[in-house]
């Protein structure tokens, strides 16, 4: 049964334009694609910030070019790093990232295969993220990471929530042999505007 968490929404009717990148593990293993994440993140940030010349996009106007570019670059990079790290290693299905451009917001949508065990762990993380204040959880995590030697920092989603004031949502779809997870980030106007 499909499970939906947080601010997840299906694509909306007023999507102006969108950009999708697809990474297939059949050509290069996803673990070896790490170095290309910066190219993808920079490209997506360049693309959306130059798509509407003349300042016709309300979201770009309220952020300013440098801040919107920085936010898109950071969020895409973190989402791709997570997808490459946690997708099922031997899966043949691709990792897909889409950037949906709306007048008043951007939606980032990443889809990848995930093992049932990883899906269980993800659901616990989601439960924590949705039941605490991002700043409180973020500082707790930093303090805990200072004394634990965990191979992952666990900060990707928390920095997106806390530092960029974005909203996160997930859709988890059980399957055989792999499950699919879609992670969604909604980036709206900076706090205090609009």
């Amino acid at each position: 049964m499909t499970r939906v968490y947080g601010a997840f929404v299906e694509p909306l009717g007023d999507c102006w334009e969108y950009l999708t990148l697809v990474f297939s593990p059949l050509t290069v293993p996803l673990s070896e694609r790490w170095r290309t994440n910066s190219i993808s993140a920079n490209f997506m940030a360049d693309y959306v910030t130059h798509l509407f010349p003349g300042g016709q996009w309300p979201l770009l106007l309220s952020y300013g070019l440098a801040d919107l570019h920085g936010a898109v670059n950071y969020i895409v990079n973190e989402l791709l790093e997570n997808a490459m790290k946690f997708c099922t290693p031997d899966s043949t299905s691709p990792v897909t990232i889409s950037l949906e451009i709306y007048p008043e917001q951007l939606i980032f949508r990443v889809e990848n295969a995930i093992s049932p065990d990883s899906a269980e762990r993800l659901q616990k993380v989601i439960g924590q993220l949705l039941s605490h204040s991002p700043q409180e959880l973020y500082l707790q995590k930093l303090e805990a990471n200072a004394v634990e030697d965990d191979p992952g920092s666990g900060l990707g989603y928390l920095t997106i929530l806390n530092d960029y004031q974005a909203h996160l949502g997930w859709k988890i779809l059980p399957g055989i042999p792999d499950w699919r997870v879609t992670t969604l980030v909604q980036l709206s106007h900076p706090r205090g505007e609009r």
Binding site: S38, Y74, N77, E78, L142, S153, L155, G156, L158
Partner: peptide
């Protein structure tokens, strides 16, 4: 640019 793992190291 600094990713979240790098932010963790500085923190």
């Amino acid at each position: 640019f600094l990713n979240s793992s790098g932010i963790n190291v500085l923190s």
